[in-house]
Amino acid sequence: MKNTWRFGELELRYIREVIDSGFGSGTSGSMNNRFETAFAKKVGSKYAITFNSGTGTLQAALYAVGVGYGDEVITPPLTVISNLDVILAQNAVPVFADIDPDTFNIDPADIARKITPRTKAIMPVALYGLCCDMDPIMELSRKHNIPVIMDAAEAHMAEYKGRPIASIAQITSYSTENSKHITTGDGGIVVTDNEEYAIKMRKFGSLGYAALPAGDGRIRRHKDIFQDPAYKRHDAFGYNFRMPEVAAALGLAQTERMDFFIKLRLDIAAMYAEAAKECSYLLPQKTPKDYLNTYWTWTCKYERDDVSWKDFRAKYVEFGGDGIYAAWALLYDETIFASGAWKKLCPPLYGPLDYKRPVCPVADTVQPKLMQFVTNFGSKAEAEPQVEALYKTIRYFK
C-alpha cells in the first residue's frame, strides 16, 4: 500500500468494520458518530458534524447563524474560493476585510471598519495553520451581536494564546481534504458548543430530516417512526452533504493519530525555518507569542526586487525542489468575480454592487510575494531534499 505513513492498519481496520457491517450509509451507520465524537473531544468542543467537504461545512454554518438574502458576511480576500462560494450560495453579500502584512491573516481593525447594520457573520480564516487574532474579533462579535465562523480548514489543533482554537468562535470549520493535517480523502467537519447551531447544521447537511438531534447523524434509528405512513420526514431545508461511512472510518483513524501528523508538520516547518534563518528577503509568516501554528504549509513573503519570484522558484526546482506554491489569487481578482459573472446568480441583489479598487491594499501587496513550501511529508528524511533545495537556492542568490 502506498502512503503507509498516511494510511495504515488502523484505517484498514475501521474500513473493514464498515464493509463487514453491510456498508451502512450515513443515515444508519455508526462510523460518522464515532468520528464526530472522537474529533469533538480531540479539539475541545461539544458537538461535531461531518460533511462531504469543508465547503459544505461553511455553508451549513452560514445557514445556522441565519445568513440569507442581502446579508453581509465579512471575510478576507486571501483565501480559497470556497469562502466566496458559500456566501454567494446563501444569496449574501461578500465584504472583504484586509489582512495583516506579517501574519497574512484578517485584520481585526479592518473588520471593525467594514461592519454595517447588514453584517450577519464574520468569517476569519486561520491561514496556513495560524489562528487569527481572535480576542478583538470576538469583542466585535459581542459588541455587535454578530456570530463568528472560523474557517480552520488549514489549522487542525492550532492554538491561540494557549487556547484550542475550537473553543473561541461560535462555530469552527475544518477540512479533511487530502492535503490537510488529517484526511478522509475529501470531506469536512464542523464543531460548536451551541446545540441550536449543531442541530441546524446537521439538518442542513442531511436533507432537513426532522429526527436529527445535535449529536447524532443517524436518521433510521427507530423503525416504528419511519414505517408510519403519517410520518413527516423533513422539517427544515437541507442538502445531501453527508460524509460516507467509509470516509468517516478514515477520519476516525486519522483523529486517533492526529498528534503524530501535527508533530511531523511542526518538525518539517522548523527545518525550512532553519534553512532560511539567515535570509533577509524570505520573511516567514509571523507566529505571535503563545500561538501554535500547525503549518499546513511553511509560508514566507518574498521581498527581493533583483531576482523575480519565478526565477527563484525555477532555481529551487533545478536544485531538486518540487516547486513553490503561490498563494491563491485574491477572491475579488479571480475571474469569476472580476468578470462580474457572479452577479448572474442573483441580478437584483448583485447587479448594483461595485467593488472599487483598492479593496484591500495590504492583501494586494502581499499576495504576489507569498511562497508556500509543502509540509505534508511522511518523515523529516522525506522532506530533507526540499529543505536542502531551499538552502542551495538561498546560497546561490546571495
Score class of each variant (00 low, 15 high):
I115H: 04
K143H: 14
P117M: 08
L140S: 08
I122E: 09
E159V: 01
R118S: 10
D110S: 10
M123R: 02
M138D: 04
A126V: 05
K120N: 03
E139G: 10
P164M: 13
C131K: 01
A112E: 14
A155D: 11
D151P: 01
A152N: 07
K120W: 04
I122V: 15
N145R: 15
T119A: 00
Y160C: 12
M138K: 00
L130W: 10
I165C: 13
R113F: 06
Y128S: 07
G129T: 04
R163F: 11
I115W: 00
K161M: 04
R142N: 13
R163M: 15
M138Y: 09
C131T: 06
P136E: 06
P164Y: 07
M157Y: 08
P124C: 09
A121H: 04
I149A: 07
A121Q: 00
I137Q: 02
V148E: 10
Y128G: 00
K161S: 07
M150I: 05
Y128W: 14
P136W: 03
V148Y: 03
P147T: 02
A112D: 10
S167K: 14
P147R: 04
V125L: 11
M123K: 04
C132I: 07
C132W: 01
K143G: 12
P117A: 11
A155C: 14
Y128K: 01
A121E: 08
A152L: 01
L140F: 03
I146E: 07
I146F: 06
M150R: 01
H156Q: 13
P164V: 03
P164T: 07
A158Y: 05
A155F: 06
C132Q: 08
L130G: 05
A155W: 02
E154S: 13
R142S: 13
T119C: 08
R113G: 08
D133Q: 13
V125T: 12
D135W: 02
A121N: 08
V148T: 10
L130E: 03
P147Q: 06
A158N: 08
V125E: 06
M157P: 04
S167D: 13
A153M: 11
P117F: 04
I149N: 01
H144Q: 01
L127K: 12
Y128M: 10
L127A: 06
P147D: 05
R113C: 10
A112Q: 12
I149F: 09
P164N: 14
T116E: 04
P136M: 10
A158S: 15
L127W: 11
M157E: 08
C132M: 06
H144Y: 15
L127V: 06
P147S: 11
K120S: 02
T116K: 06
D151I: 02
E154C: 13
A112W: 06
T116N: 07
A158E: 01
N145E: 15
A112I: 01
K161A: 02
Y128E: 09
M123P: 01
I137F: 06
I122G: 03
A152P: 07
D135K: 08
A152T: 05
R113N: 14
P147N: 07
C132V: 13
G162P: 00
L140A: 08
A152D: 12
A109W: 11
R113A: 14
R118P: 00
A121I: 04
K120Q: 09
I165V: 13
D135I: 12
G129A: 09
